[in-house]
Design a protein around this nucleic acid. Structure first.
Lengths: 333, 333
DNA sequence: CTGAAAGCGCTAACAC
DNA sequence: GTGTTAGCGCTTTCAG
């Protein structure tokens, strides 16, 4: 069933059918009705390829993330997909992995699909330095379609970034930790992404302002695997921390397991704070205090920006959402 | 940059360019080289729409799941996407939600994208009765493209199902529970999906074969939310179970929290078994015994089947993967 | 308000 | 081996 068949059955030309499909105002209600009826009876749906060929668009947005199996990203993908659908957009998903090359390949592959917009999920797509060369491929992509970064920042035309103010909330939280008497705060992370670096800066600044020297041995980078973290901390008995600030809930969960194994009371003798307010944080016992990094809010901002952009409105290139600490039972303030 | 430009620059016809793009053997190495060079210099990429129009295929497979935010599905999507990519296929993702209508809409929407194959992830796409009317929309879809069900079963032409033998593994596990002396085993679930029903049947059969009457009050359906489960069990002090068989790790985690809150020792006084071998199961303390439902295996089977099908080989309509119990610390056998 | 016809960029059958 | 050409199904001028 194609447009010709419908045209014939309805006794009109294909141009008219096309107009009806696109709900053009230049068709009389009568013919519209008639054509619609024929289309329904034959449950005709326009061929997206042919349409795409003409319009060079397929109402599709490309979603790239390192790995959808990660809870934070899965949530973002779910939210974006769901809400974009409401605007008639479909999503092509591409999981890029974490390597630099992989990311480039992902972007160029998905661009070939003639998507209408590109969303890069997760901070690994931005360099620490917003003007870095490493990030040229994103600027290149932005020449073709608007690019939206979720929790990453790169400066450039047609690039729009929605970010959690990781620096601020980390600064605040670590400062509170210090005020509650903690002296040896472990910074536990699994990456050197843009946002991980923001967190690190917030951590360091909080120490600095409190006059506590930054102890390099208290910055620990380790894979985000609960038991691996536990075991490693068990092994590193030299650390002697009285608090843990983790950049992922999984890391915090590992730290908690360590503390319990060692018989260190939480939060009396050690405070633990996670990040992302994931299901893990409520699964822990005691439940993890954790920072909510406003994933949904960021997605919302991205979608809204995208739609405004379609209407040729100017939108901000950088928008922040405020993260906040969810106080539960692994902190005592 | 289109095929005409390249043809002109390379001094050949568009047909030759097309042949080069498709790596046809009927082009001399020399011209191939020359054309390739021109393509690279102008970094030309064929227009997928035009190509799609001609071939009526875009090397794309449609993925539908109720919700990617769910860990089990996110993993499946990640695995499928990753491996399909290796075969040159991209993925369109559609999260359908759980309603019956939603599922139908999802399928018909994604079918319009002229996908090459459809994968339905999660057992909510299959009815308990494989021949049910409720599932007609899947058969309808299968008339257009091969349909693959991950952990669901519907009988029909061009429909291929990869399943975990939930019935068997549940039967075995509950039987073990009984042999280890448990008498009041709570069946905890959050849905009436195909697989949930298989599990229920396994549970009932195990009781039956052990001569234990099935107590309806020990079948509990509740939303998969850790604290909600804990609170509800706390509230239902009449249950007095000595074991919990949960169809989701989240439910089991909730039951564990209940037990700890009540001061019931795990696994001495109560055994708890989860399902899916998710991150939650190792986050729990003590770690959850849980059934591994072989998500990756099922995905692998689906992909392999899909590729065999492309080669017109005949493949089985129904393939099982064996689930197994991961023994950890919430069981004592 | 409606129709005719020219693309959109590519593939594939058919000539040479 | 290579070129010519007729579609693929739709959108969009341009006429009427």
């Amino acid at each position: 069933m194609n447009i010709y068949d419908i045209a014939e059955l309805a006794g009109v030309s294909i141009a008219t059918v096309s107009r009806v499909v696109n709900d053009s105002p230049m068709v009389s209600e009568k013919t519209k009705q008639r054509v619609r009826k024929v289309m329904e009876e034959n449950n005709y749906t326009p061929n997206v390829f042919a349409r795409g060929l003409g319009l060079n668009s397929m109402k599709t947005v490309g979603l790239i993330c390192p790995d959808v199996a990660d809870a934070y990203m899965a949530k973002a993908v779910a939210y974006l997909e769901h809400n974009l659908k409401e605007y008639g957009y479909d999503c092509i998903l591409y999981c890029s992995g974490h390597g630099y090359e992989d990311r480039q390949i992902a972007v160029s592959t998905i661009l070939n699909k003639r998507i209408d917009a590109l969303v890069l999920i997760g901070s690994s797509y931005a360099d620490d330095d917003a003007d870095s060369e490493q990030v040229e491929y994103i600027r290149e992509a932005a020449k073709q379609v608007p690019v939206f970064l979720m929790n990453g920042y790169v400066r450039g035309d047609n690039i729009y970034c929605a970010l959690c103010n990781d620096y601020d909330i980390t600064f605040l939280t670590v400062s509170e930790l210090i005020q509650s008497g903690r002296k040896r705060i472990l910074f536990l992370s699994d990456s050197h992404s843009y946002s991980a670096n923001q967190k690190l800066r917030g951590y360091e600044e909080a120490l600095r302002q409190a006059g506590i020297p930054v102890d390099e041995s208290l910055k620990l980078y380790i894979q985000n695997d609960i038991n691996q973290v536990r075991d490693y901390l068990l092994f590193r008995s030299d650390l002697k921390m009285d608090a843990v600030f983790a950049t992922e809930d999984g890391l915090a969960a590992g730290a908690l397991k360590y503390a319990k194994k060692k018989g260190i009371s939480v939060p009396e003798s050690i405070s633990i704070i996670g990040y992302n307010n994931s299901e893990l944080s409520v699964c822990c016992d005691p439940e993890l205090s954790t920072i909510d990094s406003r994933g949904e809010r960021l997605c919302r901002i991205i979608i809204d920006s995208m739609m405004l952009l379609k209407q040729n409105k100017t939108i901000k290139q950088k928008v922040f959402a405020n993260g906040f600490l969810v106080r539960r039972y692994t902190t005592d303030f």
